[in-house]
């Protein structure tokens, strides 16, 4: 085992404080009664407030399914999800109270082309009835946080992919959720932009103290970002192992060249090859 990584079984309890996200025996079946597909086997996972957790796994391992269930976009077939001690799903209906504490970022920025960048960032506040001046001020603060100040009046199509994704992060944070869920957020970006966005994400996480879950299939991205890597394996999707990453923060991109980093990457790669 490397110095930077240690392994625990999934069932092991994390920390003493009440987890901000709690999954209890959550599972998901897709498809029809005749041809059911087991997307996610019974899963238990606790995530502590302020943690940066990465869900890592090959395609078909259920990592996106898991994230979408936590995000309130997909109802679990069985089990229970609690967000800040509030039940997320009741009788297949997502509970607004719990959803309000979640912000989501997708692989595509999904900005609305008919809104300017500032209006996109402020949209969730508009829907919540926040007065215009107030939501504008809030949008400007967030655009400052994600470093896209000066693009308030631009259309989304006028921005590059990286900047659009920054705007998407700002939008997800606009209504002040404690949790940010990111589904392969930088998967559509080129390698260099992706690296710089990972550094940016770490900075935003450190500045805001949010709890962040990132889904990725990039091992090095996972090791660079994570406090804890949840490695999933396919058929059916389930948690295979959990890896703690203890490099000091803030991590610079150079950490990737260190021996510890590479040895952890190697361990994970071997494990992924075994489960696939």
């Amino acid at each position: 085992m490397s110095l930077a990584g240690s392994m625990t079984s999934p069932a092991q309890l994390e920390g003493a404080a009440s987890p901000i996200i709690k999954l209890s025996a959550v599972s998901k079946w897709y498809g029809t009664r005749d041809r059911p597909v087991h997307a996610l086997a019974e899963t238990n996972l606790d995530i502590a407030a302020g943690e940066l957790v990465v869900l890592l796994g090959p395609s078909g391992c259920g990592k996106t399914t898991l994230l979408r269930m936590i995000g309130g976009l997909l109802d679990p077939t069985q089990g229970r999800i609690d967000i800040s001690d509030k039940e997320l799903w009741k009788n297949g209906e997502r509970q607004g109270e719990a959803v309000a504490n979640l912000g989501m970022v997708f692989q595509d920025a999904n900005l609305f082309p008919w809104l300017t960048i500032e209006e996109n960032v402020a949209l969730p506040l508009k829907l919540r009835g926040v007065p215009k001046a107030e939501r504008q001020a809030r949008a400007r603060d967030l655009m400052d946080l994600v470093k896209i100040t000066g693009f308030e009046r631009r259309w989304p199509k006028e921005l590059s992919g990286g900047m659009r994704q920054r705007a998407a992060i700002a939008r997800a944070l606009s209504y002040g959720p404690d949790i940010l869920l990111m589904d392969e957020p930088f998967g559509a970006l080129d390698a260099m932009t992706r690296d710089s966005m990972n550094v940016e994400l770490q900075r935003i996480w450190q500045e805001t103290g949010k709890t962040i879950i990132v889904v990725t299939h990039s091992i090095s991205e996972a090791v660079f970002l994570a406090d804890r890597i949840v490695l999933l394996s396919p058929r059916p999707g389930r948690i295979d192992s959990i890896h703690h990453v203890t490099f000091p923060r803030p991590r610079a991109l150079d950490v990737q060249t260190s021996l510890e980093f590479q040895s952890l990457v190697k361990t994970l790669r071997h494990r992924l090859a075994e489960v696939e």
Partner: peptide, 24 residues
């Protein structure tokens, strides 16, 4: 993806209709 955004920001059906379907 746009529908997912509206769901994730807790939009009502009417809000989704006005802000997304109609404008799209």
């Amino acid at each position: 993806g746009h529908r997912d955004v509206m769901t994730s920001i807790n939009a009502t059906r009417l809000q989704t209709f006005l802000q997304l379907d109609l404008r799209n």
